[in-house]
Structure formats: C-alpha cells, structure tokens
Amino acid sequence: MKPTPSAALVAIRDLSLSFPGKPAGTWFKALDEVSLDIRPREILGLVGESGSGKTTLGKAILRLHRPSSGSITIDGRDIAQLGERQLKPFRRDLQMIFQDPAASFNPRRTIGQALSQPLLTQRLARRAELPERIETLLRRVGLPARFSSSFPHELSGGQLQRVAIARALALAPALIVADEAVSKLDVSVRAGVLNLFKDIQAETGLSMLFITHDLEVARFLCHRIGVLYHGRLVEIGPAAEVFSRPLHPYTKLLLGTLDAADDDSGDIRRMQSVSNSGCRYLNTCPLAIDLCRERRPELEALRTGHLVACHRAGEWAAPGAVPRRAEQTSA
C-alpha cells in the first residue's frame, strides 16, 4: 500500500544514504531505501538502537546530509538533491532540536542573540521588534524574559532545551525534528519539557519527528511510531497499536515481549551481526525461515495504517495468533 502523496506533509521514498566506511573504499549503508510519510499535525516517533540510522534519517530529511538516492517531497517539490541556495526557502519550514542542549548554542552569544538570528536571517522581524518577539518566544516556552541577556552557560539543560524549542518555533516551521531531545535532561525537568512538546504541537498544529531510544517517551508523546533496524524501517503504525500488538520480531524484542523466550540467548555479538542479504534481522530473529534468507521483506500493511517488513508477520497479524519458532514450523 502506498499512502497517497497529498496526505503527507513530507513524503520520503526509497531514501538511502551511505557514508564512507572503514576500510577506505567501502561504504556503510546508514539508510537503506526508507519510505515513510510525515503527516500534517502528527508527532511521528522514530525508535531504534544506536546505529539504527534514526538520527541520520532526521538529518537527511532536514537536508543537513545529502541522501545518496531517493526523494524527499515537500510542497510538491523533491528537495533530496537541492543545493544550499535552493534550499533556503525550505529551511524556514524545517527545524531541528538537538540532543545536547549545551552544544546547541554558540557559547559566545546571549540567548537573545540566538533567538534573533533566525528572525533576522529569514526577515521575519525588524530590529526594533526584536525585544518584544524574543520575550513572546521565551514566555511561550515557560521562561522569564530576563534570560534574553543570559549566556548559554548560565542556564540549566532543561532551560536551554526550552530555548532551543523557542528558537525552532521562531520560524513557525511546518516540521520540527527532535533528536533525543529529552535524553540528556534531568528526570525532574524532563516531564516539563515533554509536556511542552505536547502542548506546542497541539497549539500550533505543526508536525514533529521525534527521534528517541526511549520507548516510554515515544509512547507518551507520539501518534505514530516507526521502528528502525540498521538503516531499514521495519515497522510503522499507530503508537497504541505498535505498543499493544507489535508485528515485527525486533519490535517485540525492543518492547520486551519476547524477553522471556530470548532470555538465554543474550549473546550481544549475535545481536549485532547484521545480515547483508535477505532480512537484516535474520541472524538475531528466533522466527527466521528460509524465505527470510532469500528475499528481503518490504513494508506491507497488515492492519489499517500498520505496516511491517517481515515475511512471517502475516501469521500473527490476526488477533489471537502466536508466533512459533522456525524449527517447529519447518517440521
């Protein structure tokens, strides 16, 4: 099933990105033909372990990386291969919030200067209006206006992450990519920032791509969840659905529902060996069959809006079905 392009704010098709790897001359496939839609007014969660390519995907969508192939369509135009100059009109619509709030700000500029930059660059405000605009932005994210003259090192991580949200909001973007935006925050301030994300999305109606390794955070915040495994999107669907009835064996492992069965095979080496032919999850999957070795599974909709890339998922997609191990099925 291909989602209709008109329904998407950003439509990503077959996006691949390779980095030069070690040893020299080889290429590391960080993203391998990823297709997904980011819909208007939704928070799409992207989960996966480190090295799954979730940050790379976020940065590729924002065109901080240039994809090797594939398309990123926004407003009917493919921006995947545009140069920096042609990208400028799209920049306003695409903003990012980074993991490390302390590194997100130039240490030599005040918060006020950091917030005026986007407004001045995109000519959204005149100099005379700046103090008022900055105050409004700071208020919006729950910070006092006096922070305008503070330097980044004078603020805490939670406060800086709020400023980062304000900076992204300054341009009234259509999409914000948040990359592990709460994982470096202290527990007592994390709840506040998560609430802020939720409130802002509800108020402005912008879309958000929320990249996280924390499944609980994803479930709290996101409408839909996409699961990445070593550069492949293996499952995507409504958050409640993915959490209550995950379809891909890897998602099940992440969620801990396969934990008991997998208890003894906790060999991390095995976990990390990724198959280069067929299904990438092949070597770890307790349910793999010969077909998984021969052919790479593509995303398929097994339930409404719930897509999975697994040859066997059809067997347990129906209510009440239980996955069985490969030995049992082939016998």
Binding site: K59, L62, L64, E84, L87, K88, P89, R91, R92, L94, Q95, M96, F98, Q99, D100, A103, S104, F105, N106, Q117, P118, T121, Q122, A164, R167, L171
Partner: peptide
C-alpha cells in the same frame, strides 16, 4: 558538526556568514 552550527544552517544562513559569525 556542532549542533549550533547546524541550527544556523537550518535558519538558512549563508555559509560565509556561518563561518565568520559562528
């Protein structure tokens, strides 16, 4: 590669301005 430089790119600032300013 610092996030604040990437943030400046996302604002649509020109490379020269980013190099000199950030």
């Amino acid at each position: 590669e610092e996030p604040y430089v990437q943030a400046a790119r996302l604002m649509g600032r020109r490379p020269l301005s980013i190099i000199v300013g950030e």
